[in-house]
Write a protein that binds this DNA or RNA. Structure first.
Lengths: 152, 152
DNA sequence: GCTTAATTGTAGCCGTGGCTACAAACGGGG
DNA sequence: CCCCGTTTGTAGCCACGGCTACAATTAAGC
């Protein structure tokens, strides 16, 4: 079946992007989603240590809105990935890699919130939406946000 | 013009949002993610029918970058949710509900891309990032985007 | 009309991230 | 010092969304 497929740089309602391009976009979104959970945990653990002095599984679970069992399983994944450490019945700590990730995520989160506010979104809605959006913002987009906000 | 709000670049915030607020944000993000796949399928099926005249499982799979088996399983979920219909060895079609969803998603997608471009992101990066971002943009944020773009 | 390639569908596996239920360890109060 | 509530951890369930392998059906070529 011959397809007269013309690829255009500018999105046009009547035509779709090439199969390869479109597949690539979806793959990017899926891989971003795969790391989203790790990013959320890293940032939260870092925040808790910073404000409470320690990050305990039950606090993590309450803040994420999940059961403590779920939190503990996810923390196990963080440990597998080399982002966190913990000993039995002690709190959770971040490895240097985990701490770096947390800083990156926190900075990105703030940029996203601030950009949303800058274009007219309320602070509250910005905080809520940013929680989902931030994981899908590429480096290039992040730079554009910073530049737009005058923090280039 | 940049806000004179001062940032400790990467430090943990002085205080965190309340446990309830924070949990609520994460729950929102999780529920948005749960519908993301349905939204992507609905939009793609609608696009394929519009441009090719039909939506076949293998085309859907290729465009999403997944195996045809995965696509078929997801289409089954769409059918369970009342968004699509299909008969054995025939193409896939959207129910009225599915078509409405597709329209909403398509409009939202465009708005997100256009806003990203408006704040300085390249068209290419905007298209890629929007694929992940769009599912987390609330109605309020959407309205803010439209207003910002002068399409209020 | 038959054979064959492509498409469609089914079965079954895996990891993730939810959950509940139960067990083990810790830590305070009596 | 011991008991009990809280915290932490484990076990096992489920749905989802990937995958491969195989079966069934359709459609195309000769």
């Amino acid at each position: 079946m011959p397809k007269s497929k013309s690829y255009k740089l500018v999105a046009a309602p009547a035509d779709l992007p090439s199969e390869a391009d479109q597949a690539h976009r979806f793959e990017k979104a899926r891989s971003a989603q795969a790391t989203a959970l790790l990013e959320d945990y890293a940032e939260l653990i870092s925040d808790l240590i910073g404000t409470e002095g320690e990050a305990r599984p039950t606090d993590i679970a309450r803040r994420l809105g999940v059961s403590h069992a779920t939190a503990i399983k996810s923390i196990a994944r963080l440990k597998r990935e080399g982002l966190a450490t913990s000993k039995l019945y002690r709190g959770v700590f971040l490895t240097p890699a985990g701490e770096m990730l947390a800083r990156r995520v926190r900075a990105r989160h703030r940029l996203v919130v601030d950009l949303l506010v800058a274009v007219g979104v309320s602070q509250e809605a910005a905080e809520v939406d940013a929680e989902g959006i931030e994981h899908h913002v590429s480096e290039e987009t992040l730079r554009a946000f910073a530049k737009y906000l005058g923090r280039a």
